[in-house]
Design a protein around this nucleic acid. Structure first.
Lengths: 140, 140
DNA sequence: TATTGTTATACTCTATAACTATA
DNA sequence: TATAGTTATAGAGTATAACAATA
């Protein structure tokens, strides 16, 4: 009943796939109270152990500064990161993962991977790599 | 600077690609005041000339009834579709495209296609088909 | 003057529940 | 009692602009 004009529409396919991804992430991380964006921010901090400015996080994840302020607020309340003035530029806040944040990430990562596995379950290994490659080239 | 842990994260790739798709659709249809969802609803009605119930549209596009009410309100105000009681089940509204709706669709379609072309411009024909196929299998 | 971060505001989407009218 | 549609409300997510502190 769904016409091909919609089924093959890229906007429809991307919206649905993205929606499904969000739902599966929520399902697998239900006990962890963390959003996909928060997880991405934790990964960015993990990869930058000397810390990041909030504006770095905004640039890396494609959010604006406003959104990062709220996001960092939430993670700071959970004790997963620290905010401190950068001595070299006192306008900026340096954000660093705390040991509790490292632990949280260790808990979240397997759940996040399980959600991706479930989303990608219709595809074999080669197809999964292909999908990542094609999507990466769209947003490059 | 963006770590591979994020760059290869499927949630990140899908969110970005979807966001880019929305932005390009808006850019190419800026003069037409139509959303992607409204376009999808028009396509569904085009493929079902005897009309659809609002609940059919909800099922087809994966929205709830509430959202469809608002969406149909907007398209009806533009004169692109009609609402009429179904004589066979007076609880339901039959939605049909008007001639003005057909005209609008004829205007929107090339703009929508141009936005998809721009989004997919980094990929060749075979890769575009591959991407559609892989995404379709994720949401099946 | 420009930049970092904060706050307030508003606007869109979406989710829920209560309501009506029909079946 | 269940279903189609409407309405009201509230919650995310996001975008904008104004502001303080600092460069």
């Amino acid at each position: 009943m769904l016409p091909d004009s919609i089924r093959c529409r890229l906007g429809y396919l991307l919206a649905k796939a993205h929606h499904r991804q969000l739902a599966l992430f929520d399902k697998h991380t239900a006990s962890l109270t963390v959003s996909g964006r928060e997880y991405a921010a934790l990964l960015a901090l993990e990869a930058n152990a000397d810390g990041l400015w909030q504006s770095d996080i905004a640039d890396l994840l494609g959010m604006d500064r406003t959104t990062v302020t709220y996001l960092v607020d939430g993670l700071e309340k959970r004790g997963w990161l620290t905010r401190s003035k950068d001595p070299a530029d006192r306008r900026a806040h340096v954000i660093k993962l705390t040991p509790a944040g490292v632990d949280a990430l260790a808990e979240i990562r397997p759940a996040a991977r399980a959600s991706t596995d479930e989303l990608l379950s219709p595809l074999d290994e080669a197809e999964r790599a292909q999908l990542r490659d094609l999507l990466a080239r769209l947003i490059a």
